[in-house]
Amino acid sequence: MRAVIAEDSVLLRIGLVKVLEMAGFEVAAETGDAEALLAAVAAHEPDLALVDVRMPPGFTDEGVRAALMIRQQWPATSVLLLSQYVEERYAADLLAGRAGGIGYLLKQRVADVEEFIDAVRRVAAGGTALDPQVVSQLLLRRGGGIDPLERLTPREREVLALMAEGRSNAGIAAQLVVGESAVAKHINNILAKLDLPQADGDHRRVLAVLRFLDGTS
């Protein structure tokens, strides 16, 4: 698998290269701004672009905009965005188009290397990785008015949040320290209560959940 990195802090870039190599990626290009990133993606058509949200010249949401362009023009390239703060609004933009192959994590998650590598692999394989903070913002956004989420039990809410983060049944089970069959049962209940299609496969299920949270379903 090949990856390109866009991160303006040299210090972090060195670390990210190291982590990606640990995850078995070949780093095809390292860039420091959105323009160079798009050029690198065009040149290498990598499996994954690891992108900082805030980059020169404006230091605002350059990474998000670049990610949206990549998703439109190079559908084969997955994008994992890193940011000091996660914003539900950016997440909504990122999830609005073609779903899958997208990740949006707090920068500090790279410190937990194994989990981060897990997320990187998931996104590169066309899956999803949303930061728990994004998910809680999406859940909040969804709140207000008559809310089908109210029908969920606290445990089901936890499972829903983990599903939205993009985790597999096994991942959820490990996180909650329960068996996979218990997780499967929770998930069925959640999908039924929220009127979501019983999708087979982690990926389509995640999409349904995200569409629901994003309010676009």
């Binding site: 703060y85 914003e87 609004r89 950016y90 903070q133 913002q137």
Partner: peptide
């Protein structure tokens, strides 16, 4: 917050509402 500049009050407020330790309903 940088998002205040980019996307305005709505986006920035939803961020702090989500980080609050209690449920916040935001309009």
């Amino acid at each position: 917050p940088a998002v205040l500049e980019d996307r305005g009050l709505d986006a920035a407020l939803s961020g702090i509402a989500a980080r609050a330790p209690l449920p916040v309903e935001l309009t």
